[in-house]
Design a protein around this nucleic acid. Sequence first.
DNA 1: CGTTAATATCTCGACGATCGAGATTATCGA
DNA 2: TCGATAATCTCGATCGTCGAGATATTAACG
Lengths: 155, 155
Amino acid sequence: MDRDAAAARQEIALLLRRLNVELDAVGQRFAELHGLNRTDVRALVAIMDAARRGEALTAGRLGEAVDLRSASVTALVDRLEKVGHVRRVRDPEDRRRVGLELSDSAMAAGAEHFGGLARDLSAAMEDYTEEELALVRRWLEDMTGVIMRHSRGAP
Amino acid sequence: MDRDAAAARQEIALLLRRLNVELDAVGQRFAELHGLNRTDVRALVAIMDAARRGEALTAGRLGEAVDLRSASVTALVDRLEKVGHVRRVRDPEDRRRVGLELSDSAMAAGAEHFGGLARDLSAAMEDYTEEELALVRRWLEDMTGVIMRHSRGAP
DNA sequence: CGTTAATATCTCGACGATCGAGATTATCGA
DNA sequence: TCGATAATCTCGATCGTCGAGATATTAACG
């Protein structure tokens, strides 16, 4: 087996890790720009993702999304509510539940920051043919599958 | 311009984000398995990266790598030293400096966990031709460039 | 129904990670 | 030699997270 090919694959793996670092830094930058911490940003993203999917997150489900216990979720939502990024909305169906709604300003800030990145990524991909992108997509799915076996299940 | 193509590019961008989440989870898992926090893991990885490059990190440069102030670096190295993952080694050239050396056990644990992922990623890439991997590589470099413009410089 | 169990969130006290300011020790430059 | 600069450490304060327990609401079941 070619050593060159193996080295090339290792380089690609390193490149992927580098991309990972930079992608995390995008969230970090959003946090700094808006006086938030990493958890706050992850929470806002989770709420935005749910909103884009048409569902409003409850406090509990947000906790699952960002892996926090209920006490921390209460503190988290307190922080986000205090700066006006989210509203608590009691669910009339089940009055124990607390729904979370993003404010327009938070929605706009998120769209500006992360939507801008998505737009630029999409634009950069215009240089690729449909077949090339299909290959990239298959590769991404393959790598994600491998990574998930390490991030969740057995070694 | 085709709406299908634009949608396909957006899907790939989402796939990339998903991969990023799982890659973060790999570090998270390593942290849980070894009773560490995220910062500790990032520090160990930074020290391992430097070691693989042949240089020993000083406390100060580690702080730059993981973005911590000196007070926090002291506490961080205290933690890692207490569990036997690193040693402080005063630099004889400049006795103000504190070099950081990974213990064999920490090195082994890191190689096991992250090296195992690298190995599996490399193996999964054996299904791709040289030309295909060259394309993937170019794509990764392009995307990283775009992302870096968002993680560092102007919006 | 009415009582008990289960669920969702919140409160409280404690702990750990991070920081700024300042102290300490070592090197460098004039 | 001596003052300026640099690298690390110490100390006290702040913030995010958690476990345990409290509160309020719904579900289950005789």
